[in-house]
Computed example of a mutant assay.
Amino acid sequence: MKHPDIGAILDVHRLAFGEAEGAEIAQLAKGLLNHPDTISVSAERDGKIAGNVLFTPFTFKDHPATKCHLLAPCGVLPEYQGRGVGKEIMETSIAQLKSTGTDAVFVLGVPTFYPRYGFAPTDKQTPYPDLLTVAEAWMALELTPGSVENLNGQTIAIPQFMHPHWWDTSGHG
């Protein structure tokens, strides 16, 4: 990835998540972009990156052969929100993940946004299942039919996501 693109992607996440969370999410995105297995999908408008979504490996300890990804973060510059950028990055990234053999994608996110793209609440564990207080926020998208049904047990995200605060939904409604 070109160095100028990284700065633009970090700006997208910093501005999309606002003053309260933007700096922390941009710092997370920076760490994720340094991980060799991160998949980054962006959309451009007016010659600049207007939206970005990142995907990182997500493993079920007892099912290592099932190829899963964790979606986070997903952001759109405020001036482009509501203008199809989020839809474009979601549809493009889902097609890309399908083409590379990903079996399933998981997200801890806004329960009113992700179902538009086929995500549905799941009973599969997060790395910190006791911190999941908003169950409908934990969702899965099955890309290979039948791949999610038999998944169970402990899950492992990349190191940047193995901090409990990323999985605590008690402060969100």
Rank of each mutant, 00 (worst) to 15 (best):
V134Q: 14
W138S: 04
K61C: 14
A140D: 08
I6T: 09
H69V: 15
H63E: 10
E88H: 12
L33R: 04
V110R: 10
K48I: 15
T122M: 09
A8K: 08
I25W: 03
G171E: 11
L143C: 07
A50V: 05
V134P: 03
M139D: 01
Q160L: 13
A50L: 03
H35S: 06
G31C: 12
G109P: 04
F113N: 05
L97A: 04
M90T: 07
I94L: 10
G146Q: 11
T133W: 00
G109Y: 03
P129H: 07
G118N: 02
G22N: 06
Q27V: 09
K48W: 08
G7Y: 08
A137W: 00
V107P: 00
A26D: 00
F60Q: 00
V76A: 06
T169Q: 05
V134R: 11
P129Y: 05
M1F: 13
Q27M: 10
L97G: 02
A20Q: 13
H163Y: 13
F106A: 00
T38G: 06
Q125L: 14
A104L: 05
Q125W: 07
A157G: 09
T112F: 10
Q96V: 12
I9G: 01
T38A: 12
H63T: 09
Y114A: 03
V148N: 02
I49C: 03
W167G: 05
L141K: 03
P121C: 09
A16Y: 01
P78Q: 07
A29S: 15
D5G: 08
I156W: 05
Q154L: 13
D11Y: 07
V148G: 01
D123H: 10
G51V: 04
E91K: 11
S147N: 11
R14Q: 09
S99K: 14
G101W: 06
D5Q: 15
G31V: 06
D103G: 07
K124P: 05
Y117F: 15
E21Q: 13
T169I: 05
T102C: 13
V148Q: 03
V134G: 08
S147P: 07
G75P: 04
A43N: 05
I39L: 11
P73C: 06
A120V: 15
Q160T: 11
L15W: 08
R116S: 12
L131A: 09
D46L: 12
Q96T: 14
M90C: 13
I94N: 02
R116M: 11
W166E: 03
A43P: 00
K87I: 11
H172A: 12
H63I: 07
V105L: 07
G86N: 02
D103T: 08
H13M: 05
I25H: 02
S93Q: 06
V41T: 09
M90P: 01
V12D: 00
L15Y: 11
W167T: 04
F17T: 01
H163E: 15
L108C: 06
G173T: 14
L28N: 01
P73T: 01
P129R: 06
K87P: 06
P145N: 10
